[in-house]
Design a protein around this nucleic acid. Sequence first.
DNA 1: TGTACATCAGTGAACGCGCGTTCACTGATGTAC
DNA 2: TGTACATCAGTGAACGCGCGTTCACTGATGTAC
Lengths: 190, 190
Amino acid sequence: VKKSRLETAETRKKIVETASRLFRRDGIHATGLAEIMTEAGLTHGGFYRHFESKDQLVAEAVGAGCESLSEVIDAVTKGETGKRAVKAIIENYLGTKHRDGAANGCAFASMACELARADDTTRSVTSEAFVALVDAIAAHMPRKKPEVATSDAIFMVSAMIGALTMSRVVNDAKLSASILHAAKEHLAER
Amino acid sequence: VKKSRLETAETRKKIVETASRLFRRDGIHATGLAEIMTEAGLTHGGFYRHFESKDQLVAEAVGAGCESLSEVIDAVTKGETGKRAVKAIIENYLGTKHRDGAANGCAFASMACELARADDTTRSVTSEAFVALVDAIAAHMPRKKPEVATSDAIFMVSAMIGALTMSRVVNDAKLSASILHAAKEHLAER
DNA sequence: TGTACATCAGTGAACGCGCGTTCACTGATGTAC
DNA sequence: TGTACATCAGTGAACGCGCGTTCACTGATGTAC
């Protein structure tokens, strides 16, 4: 049954968003196309009307996940400037809500080790998103020299990704909280 | 053909070490038992004479990977104390050799997002190894109060894991170097 | 110390299963006149 | 504006493939006497 152009575009968007959520929740490798299509309310046979391969969907879904992170950061810093904006980002990123909600959280933290082994297109998308995130944060450090702001933002982003990831890995609630707490404390200092 | 007890133990050890290397290089999900057994010089049918399941091997291989990290850190800090030992760990962990040699490197950095979704046994092994690593590093900070040393070491380890992981994700050699450089600079400061 | 037998590490074929991908088909949409 | 037809989004069955796991079998090892 053919669908209108509007419906087709909406279906495609829904597949990408569903995939983005499931990849972040369960990992790229562990999420099958059939599961994504079912979750999107479709049968898996129609997948190839929208995408050439799973790899293409991965690239788009990772991109969508990164965009949603940028939107969250914009929302969190709304009205704040400088140090207060940076602090808001840190508190939000390293909060237990983010730790426990990987499905809607940072794509880097939930998929980093799979992304390191992904194809070139996906890695390019990821690299650009990383730079965009760093730039967005560096923009909240207007009193620093640009190179210093960029370097500080690069470190802040990598450190937050590492801390969030490890807080999800460890099996011990207290240790998990310590990891988040230590990172918040050390990053807020500067 | 039955083997002697010594040979059996050696075979088992070889399977664990091979798995540990391949899991770190290609990821846990992406590495099959047949590949591991072939790489270890065996046929895949014999796997279940040594292990109950892939999950059991994963837990042991991750544990072995963590132990090898501790050994590297011991080797790197040999003869050094205090700040110089910490600096040696940072330089070694965030070096390009480590970045480009995931197969023999830190198990956290190469598998973190898969470990976050692993079974309870594996996550326990990982958590304990994380604590051991943190304690080993905190032991090189004798002038700090114990709680401060632990907190600093927790942050240092999570930040290094995040930086190394992201340096492997990005597609751009300069950016990758910047990530490692920024982390080295910021962590050396304290 | 020597013999008879149970054990079991390793082989290689096979199992069911879910994966990514393909395809014949359906029927509403969009287009051409 | 109405009609005829080509397009193509979505269905559901099927494809080959590699996965983790099982199993009958082999023959050297380890044990019991």
